[in-house]
Simulated scan of single mutants.
Amino acid sequence: MGLYVIHTLTHKTSPYSFVLHQVSWFRRRDWHILTTGTFAYTNDQRFSVLHPDGSLDWTLQIKYITRRDNGTYECQLSTGTGVLSHFVNLHVAVPRASILVRGDYHVQAGSTITLVCVVEQSPEPPQYIFWYHNDKMINYDTERGGVKVTMTTGHPAGDTRSQLTISNAQQEDTGNYTCSASNTRPASTSVFVTYGDSLPAIQRRDETSSSTTHSSSSSLSVISPVLSHSLLIPFLLLSYLLSFHNNLYLIHSHMFLSHHRTHQTSPVTRRVR
C-alpha cells in the first residue's frame, strides 16, 4: 500500500541531565515489541526505526502498509525515574474505485461515450489511472483516434476523478471498459453501441417486461375470485342434489304412510256395516 512513518520527539528531563534515554515502540494489539533503541525486535522486515545521530526524533517506519496494520502504537521512553508513554492511533484508509454508471451503458452509433471513474478514500491522489477497452490500454490510443482522458483532483469529497471520452462511437467500441488506478482494485462496466432503432427497442423491451410483471399481478387478483366462485358452484350443486334427494325421500315416506293408513282403516269400516 505504501510507506507510513510514526513520529515522536523526546526531550531531556533537565538541561543538566545526561541520562541516556531508551525509546521503544510497541504494537498494542498484541503487545509486541517492534523496536528498542535503533534495533528491531520483529521478524516483519517492514518495521524499522529512524533516528539520526544526535537527534531527539525516534520515528517508526512501516513499509507496504496494509489494513492489518490498523491500531494503536505506543512509544515508551525509559528514564531514571520511570516510564513515559505516548500513543498513536493508526487508521489505514483503503482506496476504492468505481465507475459512475448504473448497469450497462447503451449509446447510439455516432454519439459520444463518456465514462467517469472515481477513486475515493485515498489519502493522496493515485499516481495514475489507466483505462482499458477489453484487454487494451487506451489512454494513449492514437490508432483509433477520438479518445481523451482527463484526470482531476481536489473535489469537495476529497476524491480523484478520471473521465474517458470517446467521440463518434462505433460497433467496434462495444465491450468491457475498466479503470485501473495505482492504489486501488480496478472497476469495470459494459458498453453497448447500437445502430438505428435498436436502442429504443431495448428500452421498449424493458418497459414491456415491466408492464408484463404488472399485468401478471393484476391477473392474479382477478383470477382469485373466479377460483372461489368455481369452487362454490359444485358445493351449491351438491347441496341442491342433497336437498332434492331429501324431498324425494319425504314424498316417498308420505305416500307410504298414506297407503298404510288406508289399508288399516278399510276392514274396520266393513265391520261396522
Rank of each mutant, 00 (worst) to 15 (best):
N176Q: 14
Q127A: 12
H259M: 09
L56S: 14
H254I: 10
M137W: 05
I166Q: 03
S221V: 08
C75H: 07
D30T: 10
N134S: 03
A201Y: 00
H21I: 07
L232P: 09
Y16H: 11
R185G: 10
V191S: 06
Y16F: 10
G175V: 09
S111M: 12
W25H: 02
L56V: 08
T72W: 03
T114M: 11
Y249L: 13
S48V: 04
L241D: 06
A40C: 12
P200V: 10
W131R: 02
H259N: 07
S122G: 08
L257I: 10
A181N: 02
N247S: 12
R46E: 04
L50H: 05
S209N: 14
F39S: 15
Q76N: 13
A157M: 04
H259T: 06
V107E: 01
D141P: 01
D44Y: 00
S209M: 15
K63D: 08
A93V: 01
V101Q: 00
Q22W: 01
S266E: 13
L60I: 07
Y140C: 12
I233C: 05
R29W: 10
N176W: 10
T208A: 15
H133Y: 04
F130Y: 06
E207N: 12
S258Y: 09
L250I: 09
Q45S: 13
Y41A: 07
H252P: 09
A97I: 02
W58M: 01
T79H: 08
R271E: 13
S111P: 04
T10L: 01
S14L: 06
S17H: 04
Y249G: 09
G37C: 04
Q264P: 04
T150D: 14
L3M: 10
G103V: 06
V226Y: 05
L248I: 05
I6G: 15
V92P: 00
Q264H: 14
S55D: 05
K63V: 03
T72F: 07
V19E: 15
T153V: 08
R96M: 02
E74D: 12
T153K: 10
L242P: 02
V191D: 02
S111E: 15
